[in-house]
Design a protein around this nucleic acid. Sequence first.
DNA 1: GACACGTGGCC
DNA 2: TGGCCAAGTGT
Length: 294
Amino acid sequence: MPDNEIASIHRRIIEWYEREQRPLPWRTPDCTAWGVLLSEVMAQQTPVARVAPIWAEWLDRWPTPADLAAAAPGEAVRHWGRLGYPRRALRLHAAATAIANDHDNVVPSDPVQLQALPGIGSYTAAAVAAFAYGVRTVVVDTNVRRVEARLFTGDALAAPSLTAAESRLAATVLPDDDTDAATWNVAVMELGAVVCTATNPDCGACPVLDSCAWQRAGAPAYDGPARKSQKWAGTDRQVRGKLLQALRDAHGPLPRAQLDLVWSDAAQRDRCLAGLIEDGLVEPLGDERYALPS
DNA sequence: GACACGTGGCC
DNA sequence: TGGCCAAGTGT
C-alpha cells in the first residue's frame, strides 16, 4: 500500500476518533496512570460497560497503588464483584504492592518495567505506556487485530491468537509522529469496538470503508481455523465462580458446610476449592472455615 | 501452542 | 436457545 494511502487512513481514523469516541472515564485528562492501569486490567476479556462502575469504586477506595497495597488481597477480590477472572484482582494487588515498594508508588512508563508486573502482559504494558504516558509503542489487542486484518489483509477476522505477522503489520502501520501514534493506538481500538465489530460490523459508519481490503474482496466469510467455544455449565470454572461468590457475599469466614451447599458434586467441589486455595483466592483457616485471603 | 481461567449480554 | 464474544495472562 502506498505511503500516501496509509497517511490518508491515519488521518481518517484519527479524525473519526476525535469526533466519535465514547466518553470513557479513564480517558479524561485528569485520569492518573494508576487509573489507566486499573481500567486496562479490568477490561481484559471484559466489556467496558461492566468495568466502569467497578473502576470508579476502586479508584475512590484506593486512589494510588499504595492504598491498594495496604489493603488485604481478599478485599481486592471482594470488591472485584462479578467482573470475572478474579485472579486479576489478586494480581492487581500484587502489582500495586510492587509499584508502591519498588517504583516509589509511581506507575512505570516503560513497557518493559510494566510487563514485569503481575497480571500485565504485552498488551496491557503497551496500553498503559501509550494511554497514560503517550509513549509511542505498538498496542495490539483483539480490536486492533480484527481492524487491521480487514483493512490491510482482507481477512474477515484475525487468527485465533496473535501471530508474528500481525505484530509486524501493527508496527508497520503505526504513525511515525508521537502524537499521531498515541491517538492512532486508541482510535483503532475504538473503531474495532464500536464499528468494525466481530459480528455485524457497521461498515456504513466506517471512515476507511473505501480503503478496506476485506470490503474490496467482497467481505468474504471467515475461513480460518475454527475457534473453539468455551464450555461453561458444569465446568470447574462455574464451580469456582460459585464458591467465590459465596465467600464474597459472606462478609467473613464461611464454614465448610456452607460452601458445600453451592455445588452437589462433592469431588468436583473439593477439587475446585483446593484449586482456589492453590491460586491464593481462598484461605483455609484450619478450623473447617474458609475466607478470602487476608 | 494449547489450555485454564468468570461472567453476562446479544442475536 | 445457545454459541459467540468481550481492551488477555500465565503456565
